[in-house]
Nucleic acid binder design. Sequence first.
DNA 1: TAGATTGTTAATCGATTAACAATC
DNA 2: TAGATTGTTAATCGATTAACAATC
Lengths: 218, 218
Amino acid sequence: MEEKGISRAVIKRLPRYYRYLGELLEDGVERISSGELSERMKVTASQIRQDLNNFGGFGQQGYGYNVRYLYSEIGKILGLDRVHNMIFVGAGNLGQALANYAAFERSGFKTVGIFDVNPVLKGISVRGIEIRMADELPEFIKEHHVEIAALTLPKAKAVEMAEILVDNGVKAIWNFAHTDLNLKLPKDVIVENVHLSESLMRLSYNLTRYEAEHPKNN
Amino acid sequence: MEEKGISRAVIKRLPRYYRYLGELLEDGVERISSGELSERMKVTASQIRQDLNNFGGFGQQGYGYNVRYLYSEIGKILGLDRVHNMIFVGAGNLGQALANYAAFERSGFKTVGIFDVNPVLKGISVRGIEIRMADELPEFIKEHHVEIAALTLPKAKAVEMAEILVDNGVKAIWNFAHTDLNLKLPKDVIVENVHLSESLMRLSYNLTRYEAEHPKNN
DNA sequence: TAGATTGTTAATCGATTAACAATC
DNA sequence: TAGATTGTTAATCGATTAACAATC
């Protein structure tokens, strides 16, 4: 288990490396040094080398990093080299919008189902996938080997739903509800919280500071 | 300028304090000590006291913190004590979904307009706000004192649009496009990146590590 | 007053950056 | 080989935690 105890800070940066490497690949760039990459990404070259060396030596002295190889290796580390079956639980605006967003599919996150409790939504088709009722979840999860559930529903229902999902075999929850699900589920359930409203509040904080420092005349 | 140089780590935690205090308020809790709050939030009491003291002494020795007062003070720090006019640029699935999501409104983020470049969408109404064409942006921003623009469009158009927005007076961008807008705009433009696909990749990383450590027989 | 709990200083821990020997 | 750039160790910086005097 070489990849043991990688710090959260490093993991948070990995997808960003992956994105930049993907763009370089598209641009036909074959190799890149930590120095060049550091300039593009506005991080230190030292940090890039430290981060990558948590997972092994992907570079070559005097040469740098092969873009295609590094991209592929980081993809493997992130688990993007295989397909993950995903469902959306909560087919309101956000759930439908995300289910409609085909780009996740390209990274291997395959939407196999969409669920809600509201009978009005039953049968409505989102990107060819019809909305099912929540009582079908237990059977569906097992049958379709669902690993990931995106929770796009109000917080009042979130914990209850999450427990059903986990009990039936879902391993990871992508949580959009305004609650810290990780504190309310068994520790071995993987929870990634999104919390859009908190993101908007941080923006608001910075905006408020900025306006305090740059007072307007009108 | 007492609130100078607060660390990013502290600012990131503020909205979470705000959320927990809001829940306590709903539950009718009048006062809370850093110790009790630390237990609920699973952070150290020391961190709570350190964080809050960046902004001033909100507590009282021997008593703790008054929930209503602290909630209100953190709200002010986050700039939630006034209304921010916001527009959505990009009226695809995500843009429409977020514009439809009324909860931001309650925190003072008022959606005053929705824009797109696709004429097919023109005039479609989202929560009573009709979608306008992007060429109306300059006039609209000035007329409606738009402070915040949510960018919910493909990255190919993001920088170009962002520049138009900023040139016409938008102060902050809530960026959902897969690009680091902060690196491509003047430094004084406030950019909050969301990057949902990176969030999903972090989930995938943790899922992959978990499965490597818990091999299945089937 | 005595007990509780803050505000704040000091100690520890972890993450970032710098430096450089190893090596392609 | 000489030059370039990594991998990695050591130094620095910042953030978190512990401790406790101040005070309600």
